[in-house]
Design a protein around this nucleic acid. Structure first.
Lengths: 338, 338
DNA sequence: CTGTTAGCGCCTTCAA
DNA sequence: TTGAAGGCGCTAACAG
């Protein structure tokens, strides 16, 4: 009621509250953490005092005492690509349930930055999730010696024993190639993604593998952004493909935009495919044939795997996540050779 | 050299390092933090020992000792809207320069969640940035009593003294209305954004204010997503407007998609405008007339303002940020009444 | 059920 | 320069 408004409210600690409530600091701790039962009236006094003083326990002190930070770190290559925020949302949603808070660091696709972020974060978190890390294999393997538990999303290197959760890019891309073959496409261009990305290798591998079924392909180094699709479109058309397979939806979006500008009709003149199934994919015109790569679930499973590892030390590698092909309007029968 | 690989490497603390280097923990601390000069050979021993033990100082302990967390918190309404990641990138980029790390929390636009996140985070951070908070005015005003410095981005409530950095939505939207008037549009529909958003009110205010210049408008409650634009398109068309002003680019994107499906040509039959200028705006077809609302700079200035506040306690409210109209293809002369 | 006390790991005076 | 020692604020035995 008569909440005295202190002018100079220096830091109020557990002692301040204890004094005000006329109990010991242990009792305050117990009440506030609910770790142990406390007589009703004492508890009430503590709560009232804490309220009145608007006491906020110091996380640092708590962390130091319990030996955990209740924080996890996530490192992504690019927060601007809508794919990643979706994964992060999945992570945060689940992590919050265990009172975990999330530090997010954007490496801007820079391998060196990635590494330094791992180091900077390791002291502030109980665990780390790296999404599609771009660092080279040596550094990647070194992560095995990390003090904090690490889980990697969407990267698998042979001989590297880091726990990972990944989407089956190869099968999905193979399926996409199958679709194109069925539609009569024999000659395609592949706009490949950012260097260092595992997914890039997997997708490419699937395309190369489809050669044996009659899919002739030319690979062009592009990147993972709308702009890279837009700018590399004409290069991709040089080999006169009947379809362009894009590294992801953003690239496909750039391709479609440029194609329209040049008066090339999709899918009548050219088929285009994406990957990821970000929200734009279904709303673009034409809507995009792509691979639905589960983003929320990837984040959720990633967190669960990490959490398990933090608790038990066991690293049960989760089964690979399946990605589903979604056929929309951007693909059609191959244009007959004229 | 002979880095003994310890099997059971329990936690290595500053003591472990001190022992191994045969110095006091104070010396270790001094060397590693570079706070004071230490004799070369001692320093070398410390560094070697730390290296060998792959010692990582506990952030919690450091925080507790120095009374800071070197962490800031950011609360956003929706990480999926590309606008926010861009702002965050601006924040992180600058914050990193001062060795600050960023915790990001997604409130999913939920006012209650926002509030609880403020509380959860306040103990773990030195400062907080709220982006476009949706909480009601009472809760918002209460933030004034927060223990940690807070800076709000894109929200101004009269009578609430929270430091804020905002983009001048009103002027920008007014300019957009001016453009439409110039193009002969007299009757427009406005697809308004999510409830609780300050920007929504500002944009609406600008549109209403343009009434005096002859702009007749109908407001429809939509939201801030592609889907909300897509779904509300037909409702927006009921009043037979010659232009639709959309709350943001995402909504505009949904509108354009739906319009195309219905065979309505843009801009010949209908003009459409967005807000924000996310990357898609320039690549969509037609490309989008919109307001370039500086995202990176907003984040940067937001951080600088917060940092200043954390250091000095002063809250110098930064000048409002100007947003620029960008005219592209989605707007054209009003279709003559038939 | 409650209070006392010993750390958690590090920084930082204060003497030496 | 270096080392010893006292906190930082909180949790978790351990007594009572």
């Amino acid at each position: 009621m008569t909440a005295k408004v202190k002018k100079r409210d220096a830091k109020v600690t557990i002692h301040t509250v204890a004094k005000q409530a006329n109990v010991s600091i242990a009792t305050v701790s117990r009440v506030l953490s609910g770790s142990s039962t406390v007589r009703k009236d004492l508890a009430d006094r503590v709560i009232a005092a804490a309220e009145e003083l608007s006491y906020v326990p110091s996380a640092s002190a708590q962390n130091l005492a319990i030996g955990k930070t209740l924080t996890l770190g996530v490192i992504v290559p690019d927060l601007s690509n809508p794919y990643f925020p979706r994964v992060i949302k999945g992570i945060e949603k689940k992590a919050k349930e265990s009172d975990y808070t999330t530090i997010i660091a954007d490496s801007e696709g820079d391998a060196a930055a990635e590494l330094s972020m791992v180091n900077r974060l390791s002291s502030k978190v109980d665990g780390l999730i790296l999404i599609s890390p771009r660092m080279d294999k040596v550094d990647f393997k070194n992560l095995e010696n990390s003090k904090v538990p690490i889980v990697v999303l969407n990267r698998i290197d042979s001989g590297v024993g880091i726990t990972n959760v990944s989407v089956d890019n190869f099968s999905a891309m193979s399926e996409l190639c199958g679709l194109l073959l069925t539609l009569g496409h024999k000659k395609v261009s592949f706009l490949n993604g950012p260097e260092g990305s595992w997914q890039r290798e997997e997708r490419k591998r699937a395309i190369s593998n489809s050669e044996k079924y009659g899919l002739e392909s030319v690979t062009i180094e592009a990147g993972g952004t709308i702009q890279s699709g837009y700018e590399n479109f004409e290069l991709a058309m040089e080999s006169k493909p009947t379809a362009i397979i894009c590294f992801n939806d953003l690239v496909a979006y750039g391709v479609i935009t440029r194609a329209k500008e040049l008066g090339i009709r999709i899918p009548q003149d050219l088929s285009v495919t994406g990957f990821d199934d970000i929200e734009f994919a279904q709303y673009s015109s034409p809507s995009l044939t792509t691979i639905q790569s589960p983003q929320g679930p990837l984040g959720i499973i990633g967190w669960e795997t990490l959490f398990e590892k933090m608790q038990t030390g066991n690293s049960v590698t989760a089964p690979t996540i399946k990605a589903t092909m979604i056929v929309r309007e951007s693909t059609g029968p191959a244009k007959s050779q004229d």
